[in-house]
Design a protein around this nucleic acid. Structure first.
Lengths: 225, 225
DNA sequence: CGCATCGTTGATCAATTTCAATGCCGGTGG
DNA sequence: CCACCGGCATTGAAATTGATCAACGATGCG
């Protein structure tokens, strides 16, 4: 069982209501903290806001009745999350690590009272569509090695930091999140990490701190043959 | 090889330029025909328009260098397709069957000169995001049977017509399209159709005309266990 | 009628899932 | 301070599934 049933989480697991966000830079910038493990919203919730991730990492996922889970996306700083469909959210969203998001009324997507914000959100929606198409390519990649390599590379592109030994990645999510994101099992993700490690493509300082030591080699693994 | 290389298609495979669409109901409604097999746009093309499908069926896909293909979505009547990212299209789009689309300037997504249209397109973009999340669930479904069942059900929901023997579906796309949409091979799609047929869930009048004779049974196959 | 394209079926094989056990680490309480 | 516990990561062996390779059938078109 990946997630507790909704009833158990109830209000306890929720982040504080955005009605009382802490406010850093004036009314234009309503911020909200989301503690690790807390839900920002859940599938079926009425959608009042969209969110821009400022810091931390969030996880967007859908859960099937039987407990199977698909991680739809990870929300990293700069991402806009919580695009509604109709008046409801269609995914769960919870924080993998303590996060701060800025809150915008959903209506900012529809009407042009704040043209700059509106355009930013619209562009984000289009970027999201494109990113999801990229994700399709990852999901349909036939082999586990291709998926995991592509995943690491996309993560490196977003949050990789150059270091002495190579590109350093702070992998915030757990193996099961990666597995559910890529349509694999945790075991397969693990084995693939190990394979990359013994092949000298990456170094795992800890399970969540990876260094890409052979970028070209990893890129090669992201493609067939 | 699924698709001819770009060079072979060149301009010959393209639909007529939208600069000269036929016009049925005045300037607000610029229509464009896309003959079967013709491309509406290709990955990397500069994006000037977005399109609303009026009739026919289109296919949105991405092709990897090695010829592997992922069908990102099918464009059915009512769908809006061609959402750009930056100034470019990030998928190919071609017609599976003769299609008619109405053409809107890309800018209609950004500025609110025509609020009704703008809102319609924005809603379509959000719907698209949600639909892609549904597609993720299908792609990550572990078994081929689940994928194909879910695919048939979603198709039935969109274009199914009640008939004496059950819900009738005109499957416009070929097996290879379904396979590339679901991350399977044509052989596996075939075998799964056959399995559903011998199990009495569907009847195949022709390869492209299916009737769901046991909706509940098919729904059961779309889920694990 | 023959060719080309697509759909179907069969047999084999490789890959990943599954099931199971062990290791690792941080937190907690005696 | 140390032992224990729970969650997560890792590894191993077996079982299942879908890909692959190959052949054949159906259908439409010149």
């Amino acid at each position: 069982m990946y997630l507790k049933p909704c009833s158990e989480i109830s209000e306890a697991g929720r982040a504080a209501d955005p009605a009382d966000p802490f406010d850093e830079t004036g009314p234009r910038r309503m911020l909200q903290r989301v503690g690790e493990g807390r839900h920002l919203f859940m599938e079926g919730d009425e959608a009042h806001h969209v969110y821009e991730v400022q810091s931390g990492m969030l996880r967007l996922s859908r859960v099937l009745e039987n407990g199977r889970r698909q991680v739809v996306a990870f929300g990293l700083p700069g991402d806009v999350i919580g695009f509604p469909e109709g008046d409801f959210h269609h995914t769960d969203c919870d924080a993998i690590s303590d996060a701060v998001v800025s809150v915008h009324r959903k209506s900012a997507l529809e009407v042009c009272v704040d043209p700059a914000l509106h355009q930013r959100l619209t562009k984000a929606a289009l970027r999201e569509i494109c990113a999801m198409q990229d994700h399709f390519m990852m999901l349909s990649s036939k082999s586990a090695a291709e998926k995991v390599a592509a995943f690491l590379l996309s993560l490196a592109e977003r949050i990789g930091e150059p270091s002495a030994r190579g590109l350093r990645i702070n992998i915030g999510m757990r193996r099961v999140d990666i597995a559910d994101f890529l349509g694999l099992t945790t075991e397969t993700v693990c084995r693939t990490f190990t394979q990359f490690r013994v092949d000298g493509l990456i170094v795992l300082e800890t399970a969540h701190l990876a260094i890409i030591t052979d970028l070209a080699g990893l890129r090669a693994r992201a493609e067939p043959e």
